[in-house]
Write a protein that binds this DNA or RNA. Sequence first.
DNA 1: TTAGTTTTCGTGTTCGCACACGCAAATATA
DNA 2: TATATTTGCGTGTGCGAACACGAAAACTAA
Lengths: 359, 359
Amino acid sequence: MVRIKDIAKEANVSEGTVDRVLHNRGGVSKKTEAKVKKILESTNFSINPIASALAMKNKHHIAVLMPEYADADAFWKAPHLGVLKASEELKNIGINIVNFKFDQYDKQSYIESFQRSLKSKPSAVIFVPMFIEETKQMVEQMENETIDYLFLNVDVDGFRNKAFVGQNSYTAGYIAGKLMYLCAPKSLAFLTIQSRDSVRGNNAISNRITGFCNYFNSNNIKVELLNLKIEDLVATTKMQQTIQSFLTEHAGVGGVFVPSSRISTIVNSLNEQVVSSLQWVGFDNTPQNMECLKNGSVSFLISQKPFDQGYESVRIMVDFLLKNKMPESKIYLPIDILTKENVMYNDINQKLFEKEFEK
Amino acid sequence: MVRIKDIAKEANVSEGTVDRVLHNRGGVSKKTEAKVKKILESTNFSINPIASALAMKNKHHIAVLMPEYADADAFWKAPHLGVLKASEELKNIGINIVNFKFDQYDKQSYIESFQRSLKSKPSAVIFVPMFIEETKQMVEQMENETIDYLFLNVDVDGFRNKAFVGQNSYTAGYIAGKLMYLCAPKSLAFLTIQSRDSVRGNNAISNRITGFCNYFNSNNIKVELLNLKIEDLVATTKMQQTIQSFLTEHAGVGGVFVPSSRISTIVNSLNEQVVSSLQWVGFDNTPQNMECLKNGSVSFLISQKPFDQGYESVRIMVDFLLKNKMPESKIYLPIDILTKENVMYNDINQKLFEKEFEK
DNA sequence: TTAGTTTTCGTGTTCGCACACGCAAATATA
DNA sequence: TATATTTGCGTGTGCGAACACGAAAACTAA
């Protein structure tokens, strides 16, 4: 374990000098700075975060902005837990994570929650860039105050975010296509169900659909790819009727693809016979969706590892703040294929953490 | 933030005394101990783990015993890297991981490497219990010296290991069966190829085979399940011929299941036509196997997340040593389904770590 | 050359805790 | 009562890094 003291001795300078070059504090001649830097490189030195934290006394605040979650739509609970886990691990090294939530359908609450987060004077912000126009304003503010920021889950280009942590939606959709075709190879048609606002809003969903369709196109598979847009993917009789009648009209449909996290809402509100006569492929390991996998109504789920998204984004940001290292600008987490059989082993990290944290 | 110093002042004793009651070091009168304890309770004091770690400086050695790896059989490289990552993270809180390797086919080297590991006076040992009889002796020795131990990757019952970290082999095999049937539903037969010594030795492989077969049995799928035992799964013309002639004799075979990590060895040594006329399902994300996925010769791989096995086992053991907490006795990691399309996003943790660590 | 500046760097203290050392009071032994 | 032994507890140092303070060295200007 190399210490500052060791570097200092090696370079024939004092610890204070090494400290100065380490933190770009200035006041060091070019010559000695070069000398110290060379030794720092060659010894592969990195500061001991423990000792550093002790001496600094909680210097870094990181603000995390994510949509709030409800029981009915628990998707965002997992990233929250992942952030919490990272935060538990890191409070030991003087990193303080502050959470802010917003309503994912309300631009105003998005902005407000951001403004509140800035009041905590964060050194960095991790957030889900839900609304593009509003994000532009926020980013401008942060760049003025030289606050680093990282995009979580939703990828938007054209910003100087340190990185994006999430999934490659296109490929995930492509794999959904493959899985769909595997379960129902003889189908004449596949149906994609999305909510109306997902057409413009969250472009992850559009990318998944593009990927899904491209699986069939690029493999020259002749099937009809149908698309049904529902006003709102909530369990209402209206939704149920719309889907039901669509399916009777299009008898050739062998499987349904739901590119959002709402597959359980749909499956649970439909007639059991209808459900079991089709193959269902959807996204995200929410409790409700996993239940559908287990009881056999859904064939495959693709998980974007939301817990890990939360956890990793914090770890990656901290690594950047502490060591000024960023692995890549796009950090794509695995595309997890879940089935009835392996779903119980999915996300054990989250389960272990929840269990531990309850106490 | 309450400090030991604060407690001491409050109780009218010195910091040393508080320290003694905190660590049950003895040498404190009942009266003062009670007084201090009361204040500890009421202030909800907990020691600052940063400062504690700094002051303790290398109190725990953990020995890790794993098979060595070669380019041709790189499976064990990933757990090594996972251990290394954990070890990097933990070295600055005074945890020292020492690695020992052995030849997985040589009992003698297994024992020897264990004996060497004991010389480092570890507080705990994480190891792969390759040979049962030898493991019994080792365990006895550790229990005499009250060293905690944890099984990695290979699960053996009847020991007082703190936990097992690995995969549920039976279920993994069952899923392999499902995937096989999905890709080749019209097959009359499926073939399982294993090496002769895997019949007795590594029971993970037997469990995978049982799971594989049970998928067809419990779903009443009528196929013939064939089994071919090869002396040694190394790329030789003898192996190639044995398999080739077996396949010509059994023309109904629609897919081949390789329950070990050697699927690439087989696929690469066979005639290309033969390979592409069959569906191949295998285990483990070794570089060679992943290459076969990418070039299309293999349809599915199941990964047991070897990197995570190494990483998590260390983290879990450290949590136990530091906080005396063990989540469960069997810690089953996810059963990862890999395809051509998602394999590149597999194990990004390992990739990021390798990239970082090269420098 | 000398006084005044500025640049460059060494020293010392602090963070909260762990643990060794050793002194004093309490108790035991003669 | 004097001496030996045990028990209870205070003090001091170190862990590795951050940062303030001020001294020495290098320059500048007179």
